[in-house]
Design a protein around this nucleic acid. Structure first.
Lengths: 142, 142
DNA sequence: GTTTGCCTTGACGTCCGCGTCAAGTCCTAC
DNA sequence: GTAGGACTTGACGCGGACGTCAAGGCAAAC
């Protein structure tokens, strides 16, 4: 299998595969023409990489999984090093979700406050001919 | 007030202020020596920028707030355009938190599955002299 | 014969918000 | 006189995971 076919079967690009090879993550044999030659096993490795990347793992974080598979283990996460990455990523996710949730609540509070202020202003100074824009800035939405 | 003082009072750097000016977000007058000259009002604008940046707003997203303040409104979010940004950001945060939570659950499931597989393997082939590493990969943690 | 299509390597571009360095000006303090 | 500090502009660096273009080789198809 050459690079184009592998890329297509894994739903990625040849550029990504060359990049992984340059990083030492997914090296390839060469055929007599100097073209990269991949086997079915490489598809599994690549799918492991792509799955973890889709989860938001950095490329380097996929390395233990790939090495585990290449060592002959049944799954990429059959090795302790992979479990370490899982646990670290879970902690990162929890921290990030926590921060984002805090920010979300803060922003939601700010929005409610700003909307109340706007409505109070509209009640104080009701427009004579129906509601008017409260601010010259901000165009098409309100 | 010159650039160094404003940066220090807002807890940021002169580089950031020059960057904001280059982006047209926080222009500055010049004194007779060609140095940037800022007023107290600029501190408020800058604080608005920094607060929103800390919330994860992109620089461009702070522009409506800054323009709103500069137009003389009491708060950066007194203008409809700012509320639009708030709402869009809330939707983005909700989507992101949702995705991250999904990923978190998926990864947690994978970790549990991998740990069960490891424990099952350890029970099938118990080490004679106590527990041994199940995999040559993965070094110091397990 | 030439077009098409796959492959090769090399190298620069992208995004974002600055950090960091260089070279020069100006003022103050010692 | 000179050392230090604040300021100026300009320009390159960073990080991550590639995208994209250039220039060329080699094969099958028309």
């Amino acid at each position: 299998m050459r690079i184009g076919e592998l890329a297509a079967r894994a739903g990625t690009t040849t550029r990504a595969l060359r990049y992984y090879e340059a990083r030492g993550l997914l090296p390839a044999r060469r055929d007599e023409k100097g073209h990269r030659a991949y086997g079915e096993e490489d598809l599994r490795l690549l799918e492991q990489i792509r799955t973890l990347r889709d989860f938001g793992f950095e490329l380097e974080e996929t390395r233990p999984f790939v090495e585990c598979l290449r060592a002959g283990h049944p799954e990429g996460d059959s090795c302790p090093a992979s479990l370490v990455v899982y646990r670290r990523k879970l902690a990162e996710l929890d921290a990030l979700i926590g921060q984002l949730t805090e920010v979300r609540e803060t922003v939601a509070g700010q929005l409610r406050r700003a909307e109340r202020a706007r409505d109070a202003l509209a009640a104080d100074a009701p427009a004579p001919g129906g509601p008017e824009p409260l601010c010259e800035l901000g165009g098409q939405f309100s």
